[in-house]
Amino acid sequence: MPFIQELLKYRSLSIVGLEKNTGKTECLNYVLDRLPLDKIRVGVSSIGLDGERTDQVTRSSKPEIILREGVLFTTSEKHYKQRRIISELIEVEDQHTSLGRLITARAVSSGKVMLSGPPSSQSLRRWIDRLKTNYNVDLCIIDGALSRLSPASPAISEAMILATGAALSMSINELINKTAFTVELIGIEKSKKKISDLLAEKPSGVWNYNSLNRNFSPLYESAFTLEREFNGVGNEGDHKKSAQSEFDTIFISGALTDRLLKKLSLGKREITKEVVVRDFTKIFITPLTYRNFIKRGGKISVLQRSNLIAVCVNPVSPNGYSLDSNMLCKELEAKIGLPVYDIFNYN
């Protein structure tokens, strides 16, 4: 049974799909179906809305999330009322989401639910902590998506499973390249430099940082308004000339874009500064820019990193087109050096 034993080592797991209809829910069901519930307690929730009965875009029917007895789940008030499972309600949260308050319950029978969960990374982290301390949950599973624009990042989980498939691209080559690049980004190493808490909590901006004396100074207000440099913050003018060279790191609180990366490496033969982002979901650069940057000695690292455990593929696209499953798995495995499974074969 692939990768289930591996999961028992972790406290939290997120399952993310590269695109809609890449078999993420199938993958989640596969995991939920095989986890040894007699040994560990499991909790499930989602980033934003998930578990629609029919696909909201293509109107094709979608698999539902199936829970077994004993699993804890958190969903919104609206979806709790629509559940098709016998479950014991154990907590109603005060915090409101767009679909009502968050409800945590324990499955008494097996059945089907729609999941919608904490809307931000912080509340997601709180959710994991609460389930651990209040209900002794050993493994928290987060159903998440990369394509979905969500302020919550699945990267806060310790482990990750990536779902990809024909829905992303119908050409095997492109599918493999796109998936391999995401895998590469997920694998970006955690920064060895200590980023001070003060900086890590900054909600926005691009910052110069000295990892030795933990000084930092603002560089740009945001990755999207590169022209406007900070003004009026501290003695920035003095900093500029004298201290520019002493910074060894650039910390980007928000998105790392193509434009920003190009600007940072502009006119430099060799890039000595390390670029640090929060996690891989904040990186929005093309493979070309990325390789160019790395080639010139640049280094990108993250504050938070999930261990990618496996990649699952769905060879069938929502419009009925099907790729050769065996070939796809083999080629992708060769390219990324990680086990690749066609969950539909196992299910």
Binding site: I86, E88, L89, I90, V108
Partner: peptide, 14 residues
């Protein structure tokens, strides 16, 4: 009424 089993903990289902 709401705790027929007498568990007296904060949870509920039918």
């Amino acid at each position: 009424l709401l705790d027929p089993d007498g568990n007296r903990i904060t949870s509920f289902y039918i």
